[in-house]
Design a protein around this nucleic acid. Structure first.
Lengths: 242, 242
DNA sequence: TTCAGCTCTTGATCCAGGTCAATTCGCGCC
DNA sequence: GGCGCGAATTGACCTGGATCAAGAGCTGAA
C-alpha cells in the first residue's frame, strides 16, 4: 500500500526517514514512482569528521541530504584566512542547484551521515515536480535568513556577544525540542575551537578566553572541551546582544 | 498578437520591461493572462532616498520589483548598532515569500522606482506558475551566494580590503556592461559614508580614511563625495584581497 | 551673500582583540 | 602506567580600528 514505506523496508538506501520526520529535505515532495527512481540511484554514506565533501571550484556531481552530523561550508582567502559561511544540520539539503561548480568548500565538522543522489537525477525531478522546487526555495530562504542574521553578528557584535550567540545557535539546532522555559540545556559542541573562531571571525585564543569568562561567570560549564551545560539560558541570551 | 507588449503599450503600469530586459524579476515567468491580472493590481511608485519601505517586524502586504535605484536591507541591535545585510539593485525582487513579517528593515538608499503588487496576488500566482517559483529560487540562490561572499568580507578582511571590495561590488552592479579589460571605471556611490560603514561593519571615520588612502595612492579619485573614478581596476582588485 | 545643518575629513588617543609564546589538558597508543 | 601529539588555555605584548574631538566642504534657504 504505502510504497514509500516499502522502499525503506526493502533495504534500499535510507532516503527519507530523517527528512520526513522533520518535514524538510527533498523527499517528502516526491510521489512514489519518483521516489523509487531516486532511491535506486541514491546511496547512503558515512563521512568521517574532517573529510572534505566538496572542494571550492570543484565540479559538483551530486546532491545530498544530511541525515546526521554537521557540515561546515567555508570560504578561504588566498593567504589562508578562512570564514565559515554556513552550517548544515540534519535534515538540510546540501548542494547548489543550477551551478556546475561550488563557490564554497564543504567539510564534515563531525562524523556525518549523508544520503546522496546524482545531480542529474535531482535536476530531472526538479523539472517534473514543482513541489520539490518549492521545498528547495523554502530551504534556500531559510539559509538566506540565517546568513543575514549572521552578518549582523559578524559585522557588529563584540567577541563576547559573538561567542554567546554561537552557543545559542548550536543549542537551538542540536536540541530543537528544547523550549524557552528550560533553564538548563546540555549539548556537545560540533565544532573545535578553530572552527568556532572561523565561524565568528575571531582567533582561537579569543574564543577560548570568552568561553573561560562565561565559565568563570557561572553561565556555562564545559567538560572534556566539548560537552557544554548552559546553567541559565537567559543569561546567555542577555550576552548575545539580542 | 503579443499581449505582453499590448499590456505595456496600453498604459497599464510598467510591469516587466525592466525585468525582462535583464532576464530577471518575476514577470517573464507569467503567461499573458496572468500578466494582465497582475498588471491590474500593480502600481508603479517612486520612493525618495531615505524613506523606509518595510519596517523590521512589520507585516508585509506587498512585493515589489526594483526598477531603478538601490534599496538597503538592514538589521539593528537594541542599542542601535546597525548592519546592512543586503543591497537590492534593479531588477531585483523585493519581499520575503512565505512569511508574514519581515526580519529586516528595507530602506531606499537612493531615489527608488518600484513596481509593487499585493502579496496575495503574487502568492496566488506562485501556486499556479512553477516558472515563477523557479525564478524566485534563482534570485534567492543568487542572494545567498552574495550574502556568503559578504560574510567572508565581514569576518576576515581588513578595513582597507573591505573598502576596496565594496567599491568593486558597486562598480560591478552599477555598470554591468563594464568588462574586465576596461582600465577606467566611473560611477556614483549609491550610499553615504554612514551606509558604507554599516555595510562593511566599520565606522564612518575608518571608511573615510581608507578612501583617502586609495585617493592618495592614485587608485581612485572622488568628486563631490559621490562620483568615483577607478583609475586602474586591477589595483583595486589587488587590494580587495582576492 | 550669509548662515544653518548636514556630511565628510583629519588628528589624537584608547582599547578590544590579534599575535607570539609557553604551558597544560585530553586522549590514543605502546 | 608513561609517552606523544594535537587541542585548548593562559599570559604578555602590540596594533588596527574605534572613539572622541575639531575642522572643512556642500547644499539649500532666506
Amino acid at each position: 500500500m504505502n510504497l514509500r514505506q516499502d522502499v525503506h523496508t526493502a533495504g534500499i538506501p535510507v532516503l527519507c526517514q530523517a527528512c520526513e520526520a522533520r518535514h524538510r529535505g527533498v523527499c517528502g515532495a516526491l510521489d512514489s514512482d519518483q521516489l523509487v527512481a531516486l532511491a535506486k540511484s541514491s546511496s547512503k554514506q558515512t563521512i568521517v569528521s574532517g573529510a572534505e565533501l566538496v572542494g571550492d571550484m570543484e565540479t559538483v556531481d551530486h546532491y545530498s541530504n544530511v541525515l546526521a552530523g554537521v557540515v561546515k561550508l567555508t570560504k578561504t582567502l588566498s593567504d589562508g584566512r578562512q570564514q565559515i559561511v554556513g552550517l548544515q544540520f540534519a535534515p538540510d539539503f546540501l548542494g547548489r542547484p543550477f551551478k556546475t561548480e561550488s563557490a564554497v568548500n564543504a567539510e564534515a565538522a563531525t562524523n556525518v551521515s549523508l544520503c546522496s543522489f546524482p545531480k542529474a537525477a535531482i535536476e530531472r525531478m526538479l523539472k517534473q515536480s514543482p513541489e520539490l522546487e518549492h521545498r528547495l526555495l523554502r530551504q534556500t530562504l531559510k539559509e538566506l535568513d540565517e546568513a543575514r542574521d549572521w552578518m549582523l553578528t559578524l559585522g557588529r557584535k563584540t567577541a563576547s556577544e559573538k561567542v554567546a550567540s554561537f552557543l545559542l545557535l548550536i543549542a537551538n539546532h542540536i536540541d530543537p525540542t528544547m523550549n524557552e522555559g528550560e533553564e538548563k540545556v546540555t549539548f556537545d559542541l560540533p565544532l573545535t575551537r578553530a572552527d568556532i573562531a572561523d565561524f565568528l571571525g575571531l582567533t582561537i585564543e579569543t574564543v577560548s578566553r570568552q568561553l573561560t569568562k562565561l565559565r568563570a561567570d557561572g553561565v556555562i560549564s564545559i567538560e572534556n572541551n566539548r560537552h557544554v551545560t548552559v546553567a541559565r539560558r537567559e543569561r546567555l541570551e542577555a550576552r548575545a546582544g539580542h
